[in-house]
Nucleic acid binder design. Structure first.
Length: 751
DNA sequence: CTAGGGTTACAT
DNA sequence: ATGTAACCCTAG
């Protein structure tokens, strides 16, 4: 639609904060991998997987990171032949596929690409040999092994071992899978150096004990510390001085090429404040300053914008450096969120027009002129729905109050606000005259505690949860992982309830079906149902055996039933899912619903997204939403979910495929973005292997994919399918597929 | 590469 | 049997 052009900008706070969280967890995942803490790696990838389902401001950088995570997660599970990320493929074969995608997107020297691929193939063959899978080893050898002369010797050796059915040989013993993993990590790190995440930088700047001193590029260990801190932060509360902000801003602006000066940002803030309160305004600030003509923004991608936001903060700091002492900014570490509305992530106001340079005291004064205060506010709030995803999260609601009080009493100056829109203003007043006042405000973490209730754990089962309705979601599977999780776990919390769940969704990944599988989550759990969808895939047993087609059908039915039985759950699920794409499916009828929903969507979009982010809208609602408002769904598909049964069926089914082995799910497989959701199915079928016989299997469009498409159309305009396809991590979708889907969406009036 | 009509797979 | 989303085919 109209779309195209205007992307203006507004990112919702959730999108921005999720982006911060995303960057942070990617960073952490890499650190964990580097430290050979693969359990932690899995946990982080799981978090990311779930996070990605929520609206996040996306940009190319994000896709690259997702690809890297996808690659590493497959490498990490490469020695487990029973896992599958893409249906027929072994994890390492999937890694090769991802490698190809990476090479396509990032221009990797052919030689390097070949070297890495060869290393993966050799390792795969060795893994097969060690586990006695000679047939498979032979297959891999014939299909993928390099014909290069220099590898001829190895090829002969492998052929010999295969022929003789030898699963032990010095060569097999010499090579260690751990070394291979690190080698692959080195490759990724050479290819793409992940910058230190904004959240970590802020934490460091704040002088947080564990972190502070470390230079930006801290070693992995350091990072871990940091991260830990960050995770906590709920309680931590970081206070930043303007000074620090400036510093950070300087660094970030340079790194990202932000041209906006610190001062400009401050001015903007002021203006906004003046204009007032509406929470939305804030957003504007960050994203795109309407006022500012600055080109920079215009061209920027979301990420950029976000970054800038960050930077803005910093900017403030800089200016005030001197002042710093008095004013502080508190960053809520976690994104909290609660309000549905968006708020701005950061805001800062400053005041002084002039003064900035001066000492603090001065500053204050000036402020009054305007009436605004000097305070700086960072608000970051996250949106309500998602909290789950967001890392730190805490919720603010309660805390706000608390904080506010305190703040008022003491300081007037600063404030933070956070949350809901209202808040923002709140604080402010304090200060007018008082120049000095103290500043800081902080929000406490306490909230966290409460919410924390749910933890998402890791990896493993992500799928399920994801989908599953909020409440339920966590269910069983977690257990397995949980243990590990605990340690770190705190990580994510989801909020549960509410909306959050939705997001979670995971990946859907089909793969999972493992044999044993049963273990993990069965679909049945009622609760989850939503996930069911996912799970379905998971559930190996049934489907696995059955041929794809058949399975699906059957499984659908089964699922449906279950859902129902589950009863409520069913309901839940459906709605819930928004996030989980996979699950989602929409039936035609949905359309009806759609109308209502669609509206919602619109709303959402407006609000937020406009810009780039992908899918913004939909996520939110998940559970709640459905009922409440349409919100949820953003788009289409989800909506559909309303009819649970229908939706699910397909996708899940398909994906489910076999499950013979895949134990865990490959959740990540798709990490990349969202694939997860859908991918499962797809991957199974189409993507990879192609399962042979059938003509083709239908891959239903997930919500996430539809959101990407909508975002793409908004950005580039309808008709530029190839461009859209390459701008989002679609997997298994051609430009024609996008065009067809768009046509369908129009037909259904989903857009 | 895209648009648009025809075909297929799946659900009811 | 029918409806439809996803997919295929082909002209431009």
């Amino acid at each position: 639609m109209s779309a195209s052009a205007s992307k203006v900008s507004s990112l919702s706070d959730e999108q921005i904060i999720n982006r911060w969280g995303f960057d942070y967890y990617v960073f952490k995942a890499l650190s964990a991998f580097r430290d050979a803490d693969y359990t932690a790696f899995t946990h982080f990838t799981s978090i990311i997987e779930n996070l990605v389902v929520r609206p996040v401001d996306g940009h190319s950088d994000m896709i690259v990171k997702l690809r890297c995570m996808q690659f590493l997660s497959r490498i990490n599970n490469g020695d487990k032949l029973d896992l599958t990320f893409e249906e027929p493929k072994t994890p390492l074969e999937s890694a090769v596929s991802v490698l190809e995608s990476i090479c396509r997107d990032m221009s990797v020297p052919p030689r390097e690409q070949e070297r890495v691929k060869q290393a993966i193939i050799e390792t795969l063959i060795m893994v097969c040999l060690r586990s006695g899978e000679f047939t498979r080893a032979e297959e891999v050898l014939l299909r993928h092994f390099s014909d290069a002369e220099d590898s001829a010797g190895k090829k002969k050796l492998f052929e010999s071992l295969i022929r003789r059915r030898r699963s032990s040989h010095s060569v097999l013993q010499l090579s260690s899978y751990a070394d291979f993993k690190q080698d692959m990590l080195d490759f990724i790190e050479r290819l793409y150096r992940v910058p230190e995440p904004f959240l970590l930088q802020m934490l460091k700047r704040s002088g947080h004990p564990g972190v502070s001193s470390e230079p930006v590029t801290s070693s992995s260990q350091d990072r871990q510390k940091t991260s830990a801190a960050a995770e906590h932060h709920g309680s931590v509360c970081a206070c930043l001085s303007l000074h620090s902000l400036r510093q950070v801003y300087g660094v970030l602006s340079e790194r990202y090429g932000v041209s906006v000066s610190f001062t400009q940002l401050q001015q903007e803030l002021e203006e906004e404040q003046e204009q007032e309160e509406s929470p939305e305004l804030h957003l504007a600030l960050s994203e795109t300053p309407r006022e500012q003509p600055e080109p920079p923004y215009a061209g920027m991608t979301i990420s950029r914008l976000v970054q800038e936001d960050d930077s803005q903060l910093s900017t403030a700091e800089e200016e005030e450096t001197q002042i710093s002492s008095p004013h502080r900014i508190v960053i809520p570490s976690g994104p909290d969120s609660d309000d549905p509305e968006v708020r701005t992530p950061v805001r800062r106001s400053d005041t002084h027009n002039h003064s900035s340079e001066c000492s603090p005291a001065q500053i204050c004064t000036p402020a009054r002129h305007t009436q605004k205060h000097n305070r700086i506010i960072l608000s970051s709030d996250v949106e309500p729905e998602d909290h789950a995803t967001s890392p730190p999260s805490s919720r603010r609601s309660s805390r706000h109050k608390q904080q506010q009080k305190s703040d008022h009493s003491e300081s007037k100056c600063v404030m933070v606000e956070d949350d809901g829109g209202s808040s923002a203003q709140v604080c402010s007043p304090a200060r007018p005259s008082s120049s000095s006042s103290s500043p800081a405000v902080r929000r406490s973490a306490r909230d966290t505690q409460r919410q924390s209730r749910i933890v998402l754990s890791s990896d493993v089962e992500p799928e399920d949860h994801a989908t599953s309705p909020p409440s339920s979601r966590r269910s069983s599977r977690h257990k397995q992982q949980q243990k590990s999780v605990h340690s770190e776990s705190k990580c994510v919390m989801v909020e549960d309830d509410g909306g959050s769940s939705a997001q979670v969704c995971s990946p859907a990944r089909p793969s999972s079906s493992s044999s044993s599988p049963a273990v993990r989550r069965s679909a049945r759990d009622t609760q989850r149902q939503s996930r069911i969808v996912l799970s379905s895939d998971v559930e190996p047993e049934d489907h696995a055996t059955s041929p794809p087609s058949s399975r699906r059908s059957s499984r659908h039915k089964q699922q449906q039933k279950s859902d129902h039985s589950a009863g409520e759950s069913a309901l839940v699920s459906s709605p819930a899912h928004p996030s989980s794409p996979a699950s989602v499916r929409r039936s035609d009828r949905d359309t009806q619903n759609q109308s209502s929903e669609s509206e919602c969507v619109m709303e959402v979009e407006d609000g937020g997204s406009c810009v780039q982010h992908s899918t913004p809208a939909r996520p939110s609602a998940t559970d709640t939403q459905r009922h409440n408002r349409s919100v949820t769904v953003s788009s289409e598909s989800e909506d559909h979910k309303s009819s649970p049964a229908t939706q699910t069926p397909r996708r899940r089914s398909s994906p489910s495929s076999g499950g013979a082995h895949k134990r865990r799910r490959a959740r990540w497989q798709d990490v990349s973005g969202t694939h997860e959701n859908w991918s499962d199915e797809e991957s199974l079928f189409s993507a990879t292997s192609g399962r042979s016989s059938k003509k083709y299997s239908r891959k239903m469009w997930t919500v996430q994919e539809s959101e990407w498409l909508k975002e793409g159309v908004r950005r580039f305009g309808a008709g530029h399918w190839e461009k859209i396809r390459s701008s989002f991590p679609f997997t298994g979708r051609t430009a024609v597929n996008l065009k067809d889907r768009w046509r369908t969406m129009l037909k259904l009036r989903l857009v």
